[in-house]
């Protein structure tokens, strides 16, 4: 198949998958797009939103539309690491001899829904770390690979802080994107009511295999990025650091820690998927701008002044992007330089 054909196939697959999810999920087009971007980029996605907005349903529907194994873990304060990773148990064979056998936990699935991840203790949360980063877990000194593609979708409730354990920065950084699920508009709400209170059954078809997903991940990494677009991405990431010499004033005033290099990777990878999903063979600056908030919002830590002033990280990132855009060569007319 030609490259052009591969790209067209990806565009079609992307749209088909989205259409399957949209059979169940009303609205949230951007959220669905970003979830798919996270999956094709090979990262994990954290969904944040108040209860009842369809976060869990979205992930369940996505898993149903993929020919992949799915497991759901409801995180609670008494959940132990072994409960999600698995543990060695004593089993008796046909001869009556007893030996240890590894019993896989729910993490051994292609798509893992970590529901209300911030309700588990940090110990259990950190059990996900190795799996998310290395796609393998170590139990009893034996490292066991997780199935590929491995994709964690976690949800958390931003308003209910009682009895929760906010995710540490190290773990947040392992999520490629953090998506904020907003309340639906009134038309969407009406559609949700109509769709969920009638007897009509929606059947979600499995439209993509795991092998396809892995193949698309390879294709995505071939998308070229121009030097000036890459410089724009690194400029945005560096501008989130208050210590950087050219950091904008808003960063110096409100930010304690900026985004890590993982943030830049997330930005470029996500932009590549977005470009390809739009049938484009290159990454543009607009792709980066569209992904700045989901890729960086959980990687920028506000300082006390930022918290006290109630600064919204998305707004802050928007100002940073404007500032970087104005200061780079992109915004200047070349003939007066």
């Amino acid at each position: 198949m030609t490259d052009d054909g591969r790209v067209r196939e990806f565009v079609t697959a992307f749209e088909t998958l989205r259409a399957e999810v949209e059979k169940v999920i009303v609205g949230h087009r951007e959220i669905i797009n970003h979830v798919l971007i996270g999956m094709f980029a090979g990262g994990h996605v954290l969904l944040e939103g108040v209860p009842g907005l369809g976060k869990t349903l979205l992930v369940k529907t996505l898993s149903e539309s993929l020919e992949l194994s799915f497991s759901r873990v409801q995180f609670t304060p008494d959940l132990m690491p072994a409960d999600i990773i698995g543990t060695n148990i004593i089993v008796e064979d046909a001869d009556g001899r007893k030996h240890f056998q590894f019993q896989q936990g729910p993490l051994f699935a292609h798509v893992v829904l970590a529901d209300e991840i911030n309700r588990a203790t940090p110990k259990t949360q950190s059990a996900l770390l190795e799996g998310m980063q290395e796609a393998s877990v170590t139990v009893g000194g034996v490292s066991r690979p997780l199935p590929a593609p491995f994709f964690v979708l976690a949800t958390q409730n931003p308003i209910e802080m009682e009895g929760t354990y906010p995710l540490p920065e190290a773990q947040l950084d392992r999520f490629l994107l953090k998506l904020r699920v907003r309340y639906p508009a009134i038309e969407e709400l009406n559609a949700i009511i109509d769709r969920t209170t009638q007897s009509r059954q929606v059947v979600v078809e499995r439209v993509m295999s795991g092998a396809k997903v892995l193949g698309y991940r390879e294709l995505i990494r071939e998308v070229p990025v121009a030097a000036h677009v890459r410089d724009f991405a690194s400029g945005i990431v560096m501008a989130t650091h208050p210590q950087w010499a050219d950091a904008p004033d808003v960063t110096r005033r409100f930010v304690r820690y900026g985004a890590s290099p993982r943030g830049a990777q997330a930005l470029i990878l996500g932009a590549k998927v977005r470009a390809l999903a739009e049938g484009r063979y290159n990454v543009s600056a607009d792709d980066l701008k569209a992904l700045v908030a989901p890729a960086l919002r959980h990687r920028v830590i506000l300082n006390f002044e930022g918290e006290a002033e109630g600064i919204d990280v998305d707004t802050l990132l928007g100002q940073i992007v404007d500032n970087v855009e104005a200061s780079t060569a992109q915004a200047r007319e070349p003939f007066v330089r």
């Binding site: 070229p224 990025v225 121009a226 030097a227 000036h228 677009v229 484009r280 063979y281 290159n282 990454v283 543009s284 600056a285 607009d286 992109q330």
Partner: peptide
């Protein structure tokens, strides 16, 4: 690219 709405196609193509 900017003037014709080519979304960095020309710059990327020439560079790569």
């Amino acid at each position: 690219d900017r003037a014709f709405g080519l979304e960095d196609r020309v710059a990327t193509a020439l560079e790569w």
